[in-house]
Amino acid sequence: MIEFVQLLVNGLSLGSIYALIALGYTMVFGILQLINFAHGDVYMLGAFIGMYTSRALNLGEHPSLGALLLVLAVAMAGCAAMGFLIERIAYRPLRKAPRINLLITAVGVSLFLEFAGQLVFGADPKFFPQIFSIESDFSFGELKINPLQVLVFGISIVLMTILQTIIYKTRIGRAMRAASFSHDLASLMGIPTDRVISFTFMLGSALAGAGGVLVGLIYPKIEPLMGSMMGLKAFVAAVLGGIGNVTGAVVGALILGLAESFLVGYGYPTFRDALAFALLILILILKPTGLFGTKRTEKV
């Protein structure tokens, strides 16, 4: 029972990081019908920006909640800028090009970030400084819960609530929803779709950057290739929940995080990376629109 709760907590904190990344995938897909393969690598950049910021400001020596929030803010801003640049340089010129070209470009951007990251940061794993720590575990009898995991889960929830508010309560959010319904109609209504798309990329990338910092908190070993598998899994989570659907992405990510945590906990750690893809194939066969997705009829 204790092991079960432990795995549950692990799964939820892992799942909430998946969720932060999956949100970026699902928003970009919703608006551009593009799988932004580079998204996972933006998350990697977030972790590295966080690491360099905390090193530069020596935050590792004075761990505090303020330090964490500062690093989080810097990483989110940096990633938003990266997201903007990626969209502007690589994707916008191809807006009218066939989808396969856009997809290939996305793969190219992803690999470029990964391998340029290896050149710039070095290929060996780096240690993420401990910018926030709580001395004792929360313990309930024999059960010990790492407070960092709870914190990660909490911060993710806060960020997702903010996102939800932006999407459903603000002007720009309404513009995003309109543009994802139809670019042409939205621009006829006076919505600057290009700017809205840029904003979507920045929003998604900022969340991925936050995910990068949070993952650095609980798994402090970061490396330039960390984004590729994480990105793919987050994408699977987004598909699981129904791609294009914000709530779905969160639910899918939590399911994936829990499933992985239990798989590893109950003795099949080597199959961990295959699980996400097996789950993906299963969902695509059984219910291709995902748990919360709505079917889009294809028009000629």
Binding site: Q33, L34, I35, R99, I100, L103, L232, F235, V236, V239, T270, F271, D273, A274, A276, F277, A278, L280, I281, L284, I285, P288
Partner: peptide, 21 residues
């Protein structure tokens, strides 16, 4: 049942599954 992008991910996943197996 899948188009373009989904297919890309499935094939990628397939490659990974083969490797893990």
């Amino acid at each position: 049942r899948l188009r373009g992008d989904y297919l890309a991910i499935v094939t990628l996943g397939f490659g990974e599954i083969i490797r893990v197996i």
